[in-house]
Nucleic acid binder design. Structure first.
Length: 403
RNA sequence: GCGUAGGUGGUGGAGUGGUCAAUCACAAGAGACUGUAAAUCUCUCGACUUCGGUCUUCGAAGGUUCGAAUCCUUCCCUACGCA
């Protein structure tokens, strides 16, 4: 290994298949993996103070390049000392490259299309509309992506080099190569084109990062594997990017909802074993089990905070919607087995009241709970990897969770 | 007691002779959300329904009219003002 690498990864225990537990060391501390990464898109984990985030056991916060570039601006964040310091989070940090916004502000804008799709249920209209990008907020060309700000309509341009520059300013410990996150509705040929383009952008990201000695001395860069739902593309992407000198890998893009775990396994069987793998944007409990046993080390997801703010909470017995009438007089905790601040101090009835009266504390307690639920679940997975009880944990958990 | 303004769905409030089960908002009921365009969005919300419709409604009772929530009469109720 080269000296002076800003991050290092140490595998402590391997499972029978691809799964493993380890420690990822960053300039701002260690991340015990597998780990659930909290999302703080705009340099804030919505509704929570960093103290709350830390208290619930989160080890690392991931912010978003595009959002922080738009506001307050990456130079302000740089002058503040990086987004971690800016938001008063002292632990490890990551930034996403803006690649997801190519999708969310591009093809997906104004639609109900998510990055996960059941292939059988894919809407024909969405496929047919695929080439019609008019009216969307992101347009892709070989060199980069032109975005229209969702806030004021102003036009902005991202290229791999620009993303690296902005991410250097944002100052996270781990940054991502600029990629294109495709729609699951995209046809094979487009997935292939987008993947090839993402590979070229990966090389450019890497080159730009290495040219910036200061940034590459303190930030690790992860490449992002693409390829949609297709095995040959996923494997090719893993081979191509795996051969590049990244500090770790993100696995991004769209998946077949019913078979994501398998696709992750295709990729991780090829990626270099000694480097960390981050499954981007995944956070359903069953998906986390599948991803961990298939060799992923890190996950981030907006779901726990977003769905929490919208009233959906995880329990050992599945999800519940706190706005439902049946919780109005339910004086038990959200989950009696949960050790989070919300569960230790409040009842479902109280939280239901907060949601119904649109009180801001509802989103806070819900976010704490959902994040703690996932963080703790992944902590248990890590423990189970060391104990050799992963399968038991998975079966017991899912049996109850899925009822 | 007199005057004025009103009485429409759970609430507020449109409609002011035919296309009105009744705009809209809120409340309520349910659902969605996976690298945050999201403290957001979608659906339901008189009754019955084979989900195509059918029926009953606009304080009450009469009346005018081919036709009324809408016009007239009386009564009941509410708010404000004057006694």
């Amino acid at each position: 290994m080269k000296r002076g690498k800003p991050i290092s990864f140490n595998i402590e225990k391997k499972m029978a298949g691809l799964g493993r537990a380890g420690v990822l060391t960053t300039p701002h501390g260690e991340i015990k993996t597998p780990a659930f990464v909290t999302v703080g898109t705009k340099a804030t984990v919505k509704a929570l103070t960093p103290e709350m985030v830390s208290a619930l056991g989160a080890q690392v916060v991931l912010a978003n390049t595009y959002h922080l570039y738009l506001e307050p601006g990456d130079e302000i964040v740089r002058d503040a000392g990086g987004f971690g310091k800016f938001m008063n989070w002292h632990g490890p940090t990551m930034t996403d490259s803006g690649g997801f916004q190519v999708f969310s502000l591009g093809m997906a804008f104004g639609t109900k299309v998510g990055k996960l799709a059941k292939v059988g249920e894919m809407i024909e209209g969405e496929k047919n509309d695929f080439e019609d990008k008019a009216g969307k907020l992101a347009k892709i060309d070989e060199d980069g992506v032109t975005f229209k700000s969702y806030k004021d309509g102003s036009e902005h341009r991202f290229t791999p080099e620009r993303s690296m520059e902005i991410q250097a300013n944002l100052g996270a410990d781990i940054i991502f190569a600029f990629d294109e996150c495709t729609s699951p509705a995209a046809p094979y040929q487009y997935q292939q084109e987008a993947m090839d383009r993402t590979h070229r952008w990966a090389k450019r990201s890497l080159d730009a990062h290495h040219l910036n000695k200061e940034a590459s001395g303190k930030q690790g860069l992860f490449g992002v594997v693409q390829g949609g739902r297709h095995r040959d593309l996923r494997e090719e992407s893993a081979r191509v990017l795996g051969a590049m000198d990244f500090d770790g890998y993100g696995i991004g893009g769209s998946f077949d909802k019913d078979d994501m775990t398998t696709a992750v396994g295709w990729v991780n069987a090829i990626l270099p074993e000694n480097k960390p793998r981050h499954l981007l944007g995944i956070g359903e409990p069953e998906d986390l089990f599948g991803a961990v046993e298939n060799g992923c080390d890190l996950f981030d997801c907006v779901a726990p905070t977003r769905t929490g703010r919208n009233g959906t909470l995880h329990t050992r017995d599945g999800k519940i919607n706190m706005r439902n009438a049946k919780f109005v007089r339910d004086f038990t905790p959200i989950d009696s087995e949960c050790d989070c601040y919300g569960c230790k101090n409040y009842t479902r009835a109280y939280i239901a009241h907060l949601f119904r009266s649109d009180e801001i504390l509802a989103g806070t307690l819900a976010s704490i709970h959902n994040l703690r639920f996932l963080v703790q679940l992944v902590e248990k997975m890590r423990e189970a990897i060391f104990n050799g009880t992963f399968e038991v944990l998975k079966e017991d958990f899912l049996k109850r969770y899925k009822k």
